[in-house]
Design a protein around this nucleic acid. Sequence first.
DNA 1: TGACGGTACAACGCATTGCGCGGTAGCGTC
DNA 2: GACGCTACCGCGCAATGCGTTGTACCGTCA
Lengths: 110, 110
Amino acid sequence: MDTTQLLKGVLDLAVLAVLREEDGYGYDILRRLRGAGLEEVGDASVYGTLRRLFQAGYLTTYVVPSEEGPHRKYYALNSAGRDQLTRSGKAWRSFASTMDGLLGDRGVAA
Amino acid sequence: MDTTQLLKGVLDLAVLAVLREEDGYGYDILRRLRGAGLEEVGDASVYGTLRRLFQAGYLTTYVVPSEEGPHRKYYALNSAGRDQLTRSGKAWRSFASTMDGLLGDRGVAA
DNA sequence: TGACGGTACAACGCATTGCGCGGTAGCGTC
DNA sequence: GACGCTACCGCGCAATGCGTTGTACCGTCA
């Protein structure tokens, strides 16, 4: 099972979705994603995605020094990010239902 | 909407699913995929995927000369291909439901 | 004190894979 | 005989997730 390829193009959406609930920093987001079921996400993927989303203008960021470890770079959704989350969410649902149609109503694995 | 990245890792599954119903040749599969909703699939992607799946041992192939055009290279699922279709289908459903969970039960776009 | 482990971030290069573009070729039509 | 549809393929590009390595902060425990 290679979740790697399935993640392509959806990790952005997953990160945006996780940030919708609450600001977060990389390491934290990584754990939230894994906790949600995406257990095979690599840390480098999350950090890279965050930088990409930030550069695309979907996130704001601020550094919070921690007294119990290294500093934490928090990321937060801005309005462009929320728009993007809505758009990507719609695209995902549409795509997913197309795939479900292709796989057959009775289910491939049934 | 960039379906390109969403397709990554799912085109294999889509092609296998289309072939489950009936043998097909590249150009035909392309039209079936587009008809099913994957309208932005490029022809090169389909031909490449078919070659990859064949090389992986999931497909058998045979050439049928056509009297109304160039020859057609048909592809058919073998038992390994059907197994793979089942596995990939399960992986897809599991992944999709994880994503749906992340997007929230009430829906992002609601 | 210093070795270890957990937290936290980032850079580098690799592998996969979908796509655009161009090319070859058979066939019918006008 | 130029065009257009069918049908297939090769080449190089771009996007993106990942493994690895490196940096650095902190507490614990020997």
